[in-house]
């Protein structure tokens, strides 16, 4: 995975240290710390992981091992409007794959990528729990139910206007 080099400013580092301190710099709380850190930055670049490792007195390898293990954590920034297509079984048998193909075709990105202008990122998730509305697509927090491939363009247009 291509890592993005960013320089953390002192303020951000202080915020990260505060998060670690909130959990008593206990390395057993690593996953809770990562949740909060991702909430703050939107993703977990290598620099963030280095700070956390130092604060919790553990190795960067351990932190990276955990970050890369869990699908909720990401090392690449998401788009302004993150699009998630539910690939739970209920959505799959009701045609989620065709909906995904249409998003890929229009946005010209693969799953896990972000469009060049940083506007949209595309990902799959497992079961939103709205199986009655299958297939389901989420843009940010908003849920779109019963999405058909020919409805994909309308969804995207909603955000392109903004």
């Amino acid at each position: 995975m291509a890592s993005i080099n960013i320089k953390l400013n002192d303020q951000k580092i202080a915020q990260l240290q505060a998060i670690c301190k909130e959990f008593n710099n206990d390395k057993g709380e690593l996953i809770n710390v990562l949740h909060k850190a991702q909430h703050l930055f939107g993703y977990l670049p290598a620099e963030v992981q280095e700070v956390i490792a130092k604060e919790l007195n553990t190795s960067v390898a351990h932190v990276y091992g955990v970050v890369s293990f869990y699908s909720f954590f990401t090392m690449t920034p998401k788009g302004e409007y993150p699009i998630s297509i539910c690939m739970g079984t209920a959505c799959y048998v009701r045609g989620a794959e065709k909906v995904l193909d249409e998003f890929k075709r229009i946005l010209k990105v693969k799953v896990g990528e972000t469009t060049g202008d940083g506007k949209f990122s595309l990902s799959c998730l497992r079961c939103v729990g709205a199986c009655g509305l299958a297939p389901v697509v989420m843009v940010g927090e908003k849920v779109y139910g019963r999405v058909a491939p020919d409805g994909v363009k309308d969804i995207l247009d909603e955000y392109l206007k903004q």
Partner: peptide
């Protein structure tokens, strides 16, 4: 509360416990 982070294998007891301890599940 302890939060999972999206790993199916953590439904397995021992994996779940490792995850709660801050390790890979």
């Amino acid at each position: 509360l302890r939060y999972g982070a999206g790993a199916f294998v953590c439904g397995e007891e021992t994996a779940l416990i490792h995850s709660m301890e801050g390790f890979r599940g």
